[in-house]
Design a protein around this nucleic acid. Sequence first.
DNA 1: GCCAACGTTGGC
DNA 2: GCCAACGTTGGC
Length: 154
Amino acid sequence: MKSEPAAFGIDDLARAPQRTAAWDGVRNYQARNMLRDEFRPGDRAFFYHSSCGEPGIYGTVRVVRGGHPDPTAFDPAHPHYDAGSDPTDPRWYQVEVRLLRRFARPVLLEVLRKHSEGPLRRLLVLRRGNRLSITPVTDDEWNFIHHLARERPE
DNA sequence: GCCAACGTTGGC
DNA sequence: GCCAACGTTGGC
């Protein structure tokens, strides 16, 4: 799951009450479908920092609440407001995540790329032109990236 | 700031 | 449905 740390980074999640926050503001239909249909409580995800000095994976989160309507879409004062989203037929969805682990050594994009011909050859974040903010990760990729981070996979 | 890549919009 | 124009993403 990607986020720009200037907007919401892993440290913001670490400071949040119960280290839990809504993953809101997603305004892409493909990502929306994953939030709405595929996320389940207990699922885990990497927390990726994008559009920043050192893009990469900074830790992991656990889903504590599955897909439900994103209330920021209905708030005219909110930057992610969508006038076209009908509250009786919500267009945008969010999940709630809790910080699982903040990596002592983040796995930077440049390090991930070193394995783009090997164990991470299918990692969508490394695919040219990929702009999806939420992408699936296989168990093997999960384990390998923990290895790169010198972390025991959870 | 640049630019490639992609998604969305809207005229036709 | 096509496609040009435009906006956004995101690495560099």
